[in-house]
Nucleic acid binder design. Structure first.
Length: 491
RNA sequence: GGCGAGUUCGUCUAGUGGCCUAGGACACUGGCCUCUCACGUCGGUAACACGGGUUCGACUCCCGUACUCGCUACCA
């Protein structure tokens, strides 16, 4: 096994080209969990070596989303660290120096081939159906002195790595076991581009070495490049890290996850009203399990039992229904004071134009309402959306429920309940319930006969929290007013 | 085309040769709880891709086939 005894140092190394995708987020989660579980270090490295695709906003969103998820890095942008810089674009001199070493040791060479020629070579290979494709190594044996002379004369070149012509390169993937590749099938990859920026292959190997990375946990699209990386490590005379290739996350119906098929980025889920702890929990379970039947877990619990050998090599489909359920579970466990704060924010827009001063609503009332609502919602935004009637009288009544609840006899019942409630000196759910019971015995009716008309009259809808608590939250005066307003509609 | 990885209920997964007449969860569904809706709870439907081996015995090991995905860039 390719284990090592170095202290655990892992990294999340995104390329700032777009939003933080949930697949990337999960890679970050596993790295973070592993570091924390092992008492190691988790660092963030920005792989901004592609100048064409660089996106300033993406970097900003990335750090924001990482923090929102709760994945604070120990070293990296904003926090610094001893092994920086943590932006690859600031490490160009390091790459140049390392490439120089490879050039001098004969492990790399200058290649003057134009893109047009490479295109031509590729075309010929495709049409002739050759098994071995890739760069034809035209410049591989150019003497270094000649190459230097051409460079001095102003010619442009890239630097390619000299892959051994034969033999096999093996590596041990921590979750898939041994993997081996025939060197003859690998081509001489570019390590330094014409613009002097390194390619991913060179930069990640150099950085992982100098930043003392012990384990590389990355997406499995890198498996095919790993033998090249291993060859690079050995050309440098360095010990490679432990590789662990993570499976991809697929869209619900299979295929790639994309914004076309719904939410795909961390930001999308935040806007939808998902809790970061629910998203992290769900993503972590997509490809990993704690070894027992637990599913709804806190960050600490997951870290406490996290291990690489429980990561599955199999691609997983993103099931938003389950995420929804999980979000509901986390909301249920969330502190009501926190939920009340969140609710107050949304209430501003929900109660827009109602004349209600949201800031003046007592926190205790919002907490009371959150306690009633937290087991029946799946999204945070439902907190404010489904609590409108606690603050504003209904302007219409659910049509379907109306037929029954406001039907024959409902007016008499409502009047009886109204006078009972009006007589209460303290308006709390215990006393309200007792009041309802008293009316039940008086009129010889079942509780359900009273509850339905009253609920509809006060809330306008047929479903919701326990009626007695609901009435307490609305308040005595307002309840009586709403009953009076609905009375004329009853029979 | 070549190379590589993967393949257990619709979905996420447990399972490392006998404990599997395959367990849990989401979804779906029946009951209970109950003032409604949820929550909770008790049940139900539902899977080892296929074909060969190896073995007393295979979901588990080996080979092949099929399918899916990835790589095959001076992108990561």
């Amino acid at each position: 096994m390719s284990t090592n005894t170095r202290p655990v140092r892992v990294r999340f190394a995104p390329s700032p080209t777009g939003y933080l995708h949930v697949g990337g987020a999960r890679t970050a989660i596993y790295n973070y969990f592993y570091a924390k579980a092992m008492g190691g270090t988790f660092y963030l490295r920005i792989e901004d070596t592609d100048r064409k695709r660089y996106n300033e906003a993406a970097l900003h969103d990335l750090t924001r989303d990482m923090k929102w998820l709760g994945l604070q890095w120990d070293e990296g942008p904003e926090v610094g660290g001893d092994l920086g810089p943590y932006h690859q674009s600031e490490r160009l001199d390091i790459y140049a120096r390392e490439v120089q070493k490879l050039l001098e040791s004969g492990h790399a060479y200058y290649c003057f081939c134009t893109e047009e020629r490479l295109e031509e070579v590729r075309k010929v290979q495709e049409s002739s159906g050759q098994a071995v494709t890739g760069y034809d190594r035209q410049c591989r044996d150019l003497p270094l002195a000649d190459a230097l002379a051409r460079l001095a004369a102003g010619e442009k070149a890239v630097v390619r790595f000299k892959v051994p012509l034969e033999g096999v390169t093996r590596f041990e993937d921590q979750i898939r076991g041994p993997i081996e590749y025939q060197n003859a099938l690998l081509d001489d990859l570019v390590i330094l581009k014409r613009d002097k920026y390194p390619t991913y292959h060179l930069a990640s190997v150099v950085d992982d070495h100098y930043m003392q990375t012990s384990h590389v946990l990355r997406g499995d699209e890198w498996i095919s490049s790993t033998p090249k990386h291993v060859l690079l490590y050995s050309a440098f005379g360095w010990e490679p890290p432990v590789f662990c290739h993570l499976p991809v996350i697929l869209a619900a119906g299979g295929g790639k996850l994309s914004k076309r098929k719904g939410a795909a980025s961390v930001g999308d889920f935040r806007d939808l009203g998902y809790l970061p702890e629910a998203l992290v929990n769900f993503l972590a379970l997509l490809g990993w399990n704690p070894g027992d039947d637990r599913e709804v877990m806190t960050l600490e619990e997951m870290i406490g039992c996290f291990s690489l050998d429980r990561i599955s090599p199999k691609a997983a489909a993103f099931d938003e229904k389950k995420l929804e359920w999980m979000n509901g579970q986390h909301i249920h466990h969330k502190d009501s004071n926190w939920l009340a704060d969140y609710m107050r924010q949304d209430l501003g827009t929900v109660l827009e134009g109602s004349g209600i001063d949201v800031d003046a609503i007592p926190q205790a009332k919002l907490i009371f309402i959150c306690n009633l609502l937290k087991t029946r919602i799946h999204f945070l935004k439902e907190l404010a959306e489904s609590s409108k009637y606690f603050f504003i009288a209904p302007t219409s009544y659910d049509e379907k429920a109306k037929a029954k609840a406001f039907g024959t006899g409902s007016r008499a019942i409502t009047q009886a309940v109204r006078s009972q409630l009006a007589g209460l000196s303290l308006f709390d759910h215990k006393r309200i319930e007792q009041g309802f019971m008293d009316v039940c015995t008086q009129l010889d009716l079942k509780l359900g006969n009273l509850v339905h008309p009253i609920r509809l009259a006060v809330s306008g809808v047929a479903a919701g929290p326990g009626l007695f608590e609901l009435l307490e939250a609305v308040g005595q005066g307002e309840v009586l007013r709403r009953l009076d307003a609905a009375l004329p509609l009853m029979e």
